[in-house]
Design a protein around this nucleic acid. Structure first.
Lengths: 265, 265
DNA sequence: CGCAGTTTTGATTCATCTCAATTTGTGTGG
DNA sequence: CCACACAAATTGAGATGAATCAAAACTGCG
């Protein structure tokens, strides 16, 4: 069973909406200037750090925030690498692009998820990451993170674990892309989203997709028509209800039987 | 362009053979008790460390070696995680297995490559890793590595970079599995092997595959018959020559045109 | 030297893609 | 606030690439 082991923080339910008034973002920003007040703190990078350690880590990595509007890039392939980012609010997609223009989405990130690990090795990003809705991230300058994690063992461990978790997550996707049939892929995908929403305190049984059918297809190695057809089929079978981006899971076990054994983040 | 940026050490050419007499392994073992004498040192974990740093890192991570015979597992999914491993000599495959018995090879590792990163997060391995020929690895107890990398900035950096590189490598495979056709996948695979052999000082133009058609297929998300057919087709087109596991690349550019734009480790 | 495992090759089937048309939804500007 | 234009989703029909099933040839390991 390959799945992300992260448990995520409970977010206020109103965060789930696609549109979000600027006033709310402002409020969040004011009340969570530091990790100590952040509502995803427990399940973000500084998770597991004691208050002291957190303080030190936080001071050392004096990170700011960055607002990314829907459709904007947090960073693009080729950009020089300086920071890691933790999603505080919102939803992102990361993707690779080949010379001949084909692209492949490698992940969808939501609150608590870490972004930017692709840039550490060469000090240039190999992925592009774009917000699928107005979003807010914490910025952790990597240089400071390096220093801090030398001093704070627990932070170093968190960082290593996050990277390892990402590696394991990707194994799950390779499995999905390499061995699963279309129906299994889509079932896996829905269950994974469900789990992740649930882990964040939302109902896992119904949610709004933040991405298009084409984006789902890109992630799953399928064409958008195939994704659409399979969602329709699932609906006919009474497994789910869909209305555009809204999905309600009616028969979780049925979906799991279809190929949800391996959940993929 | 997504590809492994590692540059690897020059190995004596006789290491390329599938079979290797025990006497040679013994010799290697004696002459390379420490990283300072290891012929893959430059491109292994301690790469870039000064002699002092190397000393400290090495002392802290007093690692031994481990011999793994062909067909034996270095570790298996579920095993508790204790160490990272660097391939010193030989060839490995790593793979995930699902509940229903399907498996997917996630990588082939050769001299200088790092193994075990999948275990850091949960402290249990999620992959199994098996030697495809008699092999020898360096063992780096993770606890010691943690301590050492707190003290030695350069070691910490090397470790982070190795993990990031693995993440980027996997993005390349996701791209391959998600968007490439069978011919492109096989062409990519051959070119990648070629590059990696070349980077290690071997001729990139001809080499012996260490894995079966089935293993290649598992890695590439194809059936073994498809792999075989495509190799035959490449031969008909004059792109390569094959005789069982021996491959000679006749037209590198031709292969690259076919889909080698993205090299995958 | 023989046998098990590997590889090649062929014939056929099937899942997914492609192309195409229609419907539905969404954001914008009058 | 409505209408329009563009983007997204659905659905169908047909094409196609890879899987499957099957058999024969080869290799190398014991």
């Amino acid at each position: 069973m390959v799945m992300s082991a992260t448990v995520h923080a409970i977010l206020p339910a109103h965060n789930i909406g696609l549109a979000r008034p600027a006033s709310m973002l402002r409020e969040v920003n004011q009340t969570t200037q530091r990790c100590g007040h952040c509502h995803v703190r427990e399940h973000c990078l500084p998770s597991g750090l004691t208050l002291e350690e957190l303080g030190e880590a936080h001071d050392a990595a004096t990170h700011g925030h960055r607002r990314v509007k829907r459709g904007e890039a947090l960073y693009q392939a080729g950009d020089s690498f300086r920071s890691l980012y933790a999603v505080r609010l919102g939803f992102f997609k990361s993707f690779v692009v080949t010379e001949d223009g084909r692209s492949q989405i490698t992940g969808f990130q939501m609150a608590g998820d870490l972004l930017g690990l692709d840039g550490i090795d060469t000090e240039a990003h190999s992925l592009s990451t774009v917000a699928l809705e107005d979003s807010d991230v914490c910025v952790f300058p990597y240089a400071q993170l390096e220093t801090a994690s030398s001093r704070v063992q627990a932070l170093q461990r968190q960082l290593h674990r996050a990277m390892s978790r990402e590696i394991v997550r990707e194994h799950g996707i390779m499995m999905l892309l390499g061995t699963m049939r279309a129906e299994e892929r889509v079932a896996s995908f829905l269950l994974n989203l469900s789990q992740r929403f649930m882990a964040r305190g939302y109902a896992g049984g119904e949610f709004n997709l933040r991405m298009t059918r084409e984006e789902i297809g890109s992630y799953l190695g399928l064409k958008l028509e195939t994704v659409s057809r399979i969602l329709s089929r699932f609906q006919e079978c009474g497994l789910i209800t869909t209305r555009n981006r809204y999905v309600r899971i009616l028969n979780k076990l049925g979906l799991a039987d279809l190929g949800g054994r391996t959940a993929v983040a």
